[in-house]
């Protein structure tokens, strides 16, 4: 089975600070592979272990994404491909899907594309469905379990009001939830071996696109960004007998006038 995992080297939102004027400081924010993409990677490994085949990781992002992709190689991907985003992340999900689609097409056919339900920074969940549409394959989103049998994929989807079991013929695209599995943590051996696995860096031109083309395709313009700095009082009551601690808390809550009338 030929499996492609799409991964984002995302800004770690936990590390974003807001400056005194209320603007988010986005320069030099540490990045990491978006958490749920690791669940997609783990799902790919489980399928490969059962059915054999290859796992290719494809990403669209800054050159530094190489570090993150190495982690996925260490987890168990066979090859990684990074299409370098020349825009510093200003392009929207449509441009991203176009770039990923071009890279996947260049790699030849696929049976299954796996991605996370959404990324930790933007949390839009658009790239998966857009990519499926662009490549003309069915999509299964919010999968919390999946199996492959006789060229078809069966997945259980986690929706607000129901679990839905669906069957789609391959090739298809599946987005997975956080709950589908627990991503493995690569061993030191695996990390060392990963540095020898094939890693390919592509410019947009290498996949038949140009920066101008992608900027045109990008459907969204940013007007403004405003940070929310929520300041909490951080009063912590500790090392006190429970009854005393509780009385202290209750008196604070009365002072705040948040305990009923």
């Amino acid at each position: 089975m030929k499996i492609v995992v799409c991964a984002k080297y995302a800004l770690d939102p936990g590390e974003i600070r807001i400056d005194p004027s209320g603007k988010p400081m986005l320069d030099r924010v540490p990045r990491k592979i978006s958490d749920i993409d690791k669940n997609a990677m783990e799902a790919a490994i489980n399928l490969k272990e059962k059915h054999g085949g290859t796992i290719q990781v494809v990403a669209f992002g800054p050159e530094s994404a190489r570090d993150g992709l190495k982690e996925l190689l260490a987890m168990g991907a066979d090859e990684a491909y990074l299409v370098v985003d020349p825009s510093d992340g200003r392009l929207d999900t449509m441009a991203t899907a176009e770039a990923l689609a071009a890279a996947i097409q260049k790699l030849g056919g696929f049976d299954l594309i796996l991605c996370g339900e959404a990324t930790i920074d933007g949390y839009a969940g658009q790239v998966g469905p857009r990519l499926a549409e662009k490549l003309g394959v069915p999509q299964v989103t919010y999968a919390r379990s999946l199996t492959v049998e006789d060229g078809s994929l069966i997945a259980e989807r986690d929706l607000e009001d129901a679990y839905e079991k669906v069957k789609v013929p391959l090739p298809a695209l599946v987005s997975v939830t956080r709950e589908i599995n627990t991503p493995r943590i690569p061993t030191l051996m695996a990390i060392l071996k990963a540095s020898k696995k094939p890693f390919t860096l592509w410019k947009l031109e290498d996949v038949g696109l140009s920066r101008e083309q992608l900027e045109q395709l990008s459907g969204i313009e940013l007007v403004d960004m405003q940070g929310f700095a929520v300041e909490r009082k951080r009063v912590v009551i500790k090392d006190k007998p429970v009854e005393e601690a509780v009385e202290e808390l209750v008196s604070y809550l009365f002072k705040e006038k948040v305990l009923g009338a």
């Binding site: 929207d92 999900t93 449509m94 899907a97 933007g122 949390y123 839009a124 969940g125 658009q126 790239v127 998966g128 469905p129 857009r130 499926a132 549409e133 662009k134 999509q139 989103t141 919010y142 395709l217 990008s218 459907g219 969204i220």
Partner: peptide
């Protein structure tokens, strides 16, 4: 949330999520 981006891609347009 799975319909909107697929539709937007076919319409070749931007979609603002949530």
């Amino acid at each position: 949330k799975e319909l909107a981006p697929r539709l937007a891609q076919r319409l070749k347009t931007g979609c603002v999520a949530e």
